[in-house]
Nucleic acid binder design. Sequence first.
DNA 1: AATCGGTCCAACCGCCTAACT
DNA 2: TAGTTAGGCGGTTGGACCGAT
Length: 344
Amino acid sequence: MGRAPCCDKANVKKGPWSPEEDEKLKDYIQTHGTGGNWIALPQKAGLRRCGKSCRLRWLNYLRPNIKHGEFSDDEDKVICALFASIGSRWSIMAAQLPGRTDNDIKNYWNTKLKKKMMNSLISMPEIRKPLHHLQSFTTSSTNYSYPSLSSFHDTNNININTPLSSPPPPPPSSSYMYNNNSHTSSYHNDQTLSIPSSPTTTAAVVSHHHNPVLQSQDHGYLGLGPMEDYQGVKDSSTLVMFGGDQAATSSSNSDGSCQYDHQYSSIGMYDHNNMRNMRSDSYNKEFGVNFDKEKGYYGDSSLDSSLEEIKQLISTNFCSSKIDNNLNFFADETKEVKKVMYYY
DNA sequence: AATCGGTCCAACCGCCTAACT
DNA sequence: TAGTTAGGCGGTTGGACCGAT
């Protein structure tokens, strides 16, 4: 019953392959093929290796037409698009990229492309969160309209009732906050801005130039806690603030906008450099969220959620049937996302 | 020159499914 | 039909390498 064991585990060599072993394996397969039996192959080829190890070495390194070296922009786009639509199915991705192996793609994604993608999505304005909100904006339509922002104005009388296809207005010079639940408001050099309700997510931006959020406890309007609350963050300019279940007293205006005094009960910080979400110790003490010393961040937020959002964002807006025949679509739409981000 | 921390990637590990007996 | 393994896959890791201090 069953089959013979695949190899004598005690007698097989492990670790890096020597050039001699490579040569033996290559010669054997080029002469005889794999014979559809990797387990028997090492003995026939005169190798003290497990069949699985031979298979891996051949597929990932020795077989003809393997492409090594830098990935092209087009390859980046394919990987990003496929990741968004199918997740970490590296072998399927490899099938779409001639010469690339699943291992290569997996390594490339984990070490470079993931970071590149994250930076691409958050780099222009220092914003990270309103991804769900953006989904409703980034349609394939060329004529964007934002009913929810139709009467948006700020205290400097900058009318932002502008379609996205036009150049976006400059971002606030210091910082602002954007909140979704039912109201939206902003801070701008200690002035309160008001915009109408309706968007569906929460985000906030912290300027690179100075950081009123981290100073804000002194002003009493955010209660985020001092800089040293954020364990492991050396440079406040890398932080982006988001989140916020708010408890606020508000007053509505006739145009549908509203203003209120903020008392945020849930605020998160996103650390650009370390690509992780954080919350202040003040928050965590109050709500019993523990700092995970092993992971280095607070337990309820991590990079994973960011990736999920990227995945969701891309899959909803960029991918579908257009992946195969229009790679530039992804890049163009990414620009649109950046424009929307910049817009805020 | 030595040390340290971060990056990269080849290779291993363990799981799942299909195939075999 | 049940037990077992091969093949395939994604996740993880060890160590080489490199730049900064």
